[in-house]
Structures are given as structure tokens and as C-alpha cells.
Amino acid sequence: MRADRLIQVLLHLQSRPRVTAAQLAADLEVSVATARRDLEALAAAGVPVYPQPGRGGGWSLVGGSRTDLSGLTAPEARALFLLAGPGASSSDDARGALRKLVRALPATFRAEAEAAARAVVVDREAWSAAGRPRPPEVDALERAVVERRRVRIDYTGATGASSRRDVDPWGLVDKDGAWYLIAGTPRGPRTFRVSRVHALEVTDERAQVPEDLDLQAEWERVVGEVEVKRSATWATVRVAAEHVDVLRAQFGRHTVVADDAGPDGSGRVRVRVAAPTPLDVARHLAGWGAEADVVGPPEVRSELSRLGAELVAAYGGDARP
């Protein structure tokens, strides 16, 4: 651990003009005596580090000496930190490695690397079918987020209406293959589905991004609002125990197996599922036929009955095998 800590000390010295033993001890979570011994060990090993006594003193690298331990170019660093940003890994080791690496980067592109590390959130819980190709606009949007450039987009909303908007990109979210842009607008933060962006221009205007932005927290707020709308109607269904995973694939997180979910006399278990409207629930369950017994509510059973009558009217007289 000593060698690893000495590298951290060196990277710390490279990231600021002067540091005291007390500051170093606090940052590395070691004692002041340990920090001072590490600094002295670096000096004894030939690293050009020296102490400056007195008020405002501390330890510095001679002449601002730098050792680029990363060997990365600016584009490589940006790409690496985009891959290793929020949600990609939450382990302490990963976060520690990123902290060390960002201090090892040349100052000329350290800020971009730090911005890239905060640019993308990864959310593995899909809202619908995954496996989509990555939209080509993602690369340009990532760059706009990192460089804090305002973007002009032609966007088609959920209703089919198209509009042109100038927005300040705050960050991107990869939700199991579906990409979303979180951006600032004159009406406050908004979320745009990247697949609905059919024209994109990165402008030279500086984007306005909150200095205290927590992209992960902002996305969790968005998810909370969406999930409330997606779970407005709950229904209770009885299915064979081996089919619960199929229901879960259809309804995602809105699938709750009853606490007393042991198979009843028919070998079925009770499962609660949810969707925005009774019709949405019924559409998901209509294909199950008699394999799913919808206990309630009556609104969902009514929609199933109506869908069944439509199918009988359309295909009931078809005598083809």
C-alpha cells in the first residue's frame, strides 16, 4: 500500500501549486505524520519535491515538474471517462481509480475529463424493448455536454408534433439501450428521447449548466415522475408460477408477486401488474388468453372483454384452419 499511496501523493502535488502535510493527510485519510513521512520519502527517492516553511508554506514540486502517468491524449481521456461515468460502476475501487487518473492527466484537458465523467448516466432498467442501435446523435451530444455547448435540435414529441429548440445539454442517460438527453430550457429542465432528434447542430454558444448539477439525482427525479404515470392502473392476475418471469418482462418494475405467492390449488400465483391506463394493462394481457386470470379491477376486465369482442367480430367467421 505504501507505493500506491506515494503515487497518490505525487499526483496530489501535480494537481496544485502547494500542499501542506495536514491538507494531504485529510485528502488521503492518513495521519499528518504519515503524510509528512511520505513527502520526505519522495524527496529522498529523487522526486523534485521540497518544503517551504513559514506562513503560506507547504510542499511543492520544483519548477512545477510534472509526470504524466497516464500517457493519454485528450480524446482518449474523454472517451475513457465517458465510459466510466456515473452508473457505469459504483465500486469504491472504480471511483478511486478515476480520482487518481484525473490527477495524472495534463492540466490542459483535465477539466474535460472530469466533465466527461459526469456526462452519462447508465440505467439498466428498461422502460420498453431494448436492443436498439446507438443513435448517431449521441456522439455529438456527448461532445456538447463535455464542452458545454448549446445545441439546436429538431425534435418530434410523443404526439407527433415537430419543433426546433435551442437547449443547454446537461447530460445523457443510457437506459438499457434507449438514450435520453437531459437539458436546460427556458421552461426549466426537460428530458428528450435522442431517437426523436432528427436534426442536430452544436452551436458556438456557451451552455448554461448548474454548477451543483447532480446528473444521477436529476435522472432519478425524472424516473420518479415517469413511473408515477406508468403505474396509474394496477391489476391483479393469476398465472402459473413459471410464467411470472414472462409477466415481469412485459411490465418491468411494475410487477409485484403477492407475499403469499405460493401456488394455489390450480398451481397459479397472484401477481400485481401496472400500466398507465386500464386499456394499456388489457393490451398487455390480451395475448395470454385463458393463461392469465385477471381478478380485477373491473375496468381492466371490461377492456379485455371489449378487445375480445372486437377480435371475435373481426375473425370469428374466418373458417380457415
Rank of each mutant, 00 (worst) to 15 (best):
A77L: 11
G287A: 12
S15G: 12
W127A: 11
V9M: 03
E125Y: 02
V30G: 10
A178F: 06
S128T: 15
Q8N: 09
F192T: 06
G56T: 05
P75W: 12
P278W: 01
D260V: 14
P278S: 01
F109Y: 15
Y315K: 01
A274E: 11
R152G: 07
R238D: 07
P276R: 12
E310S: 10
A261G: 11
D260E: 15
A286K: 08
A126Q: 02
G85K: 00
R2E: 06
A115H: 01
P297N: 02
Q8W: 13
A140P: 02
P133I: 01
M1Y: 06
T67W: 15
A313H: 11
V167Q: 14
S89I: 00
A292G: 06
P189H: 12
A199D: 15
R150L: 04
V194W: 12
V197G: 08
D280C: 14
R196F: 08
P210Y: 10
Y315F: 13
D93N: 07
I182Q: 10
H12Y: 02
R18S: 08
G267C: 12
Q52H: 10
V32S: 03
A88F: 03
E76D: 10
A319S: 09
A161W: 10
E29T: 14
V145F: 10
D123A: 05
A274F: 01
G252I: 02
G296M: 04
A117W: 07
Q208V: 14
D176F: 01
A309W: 15
E137Q: 15
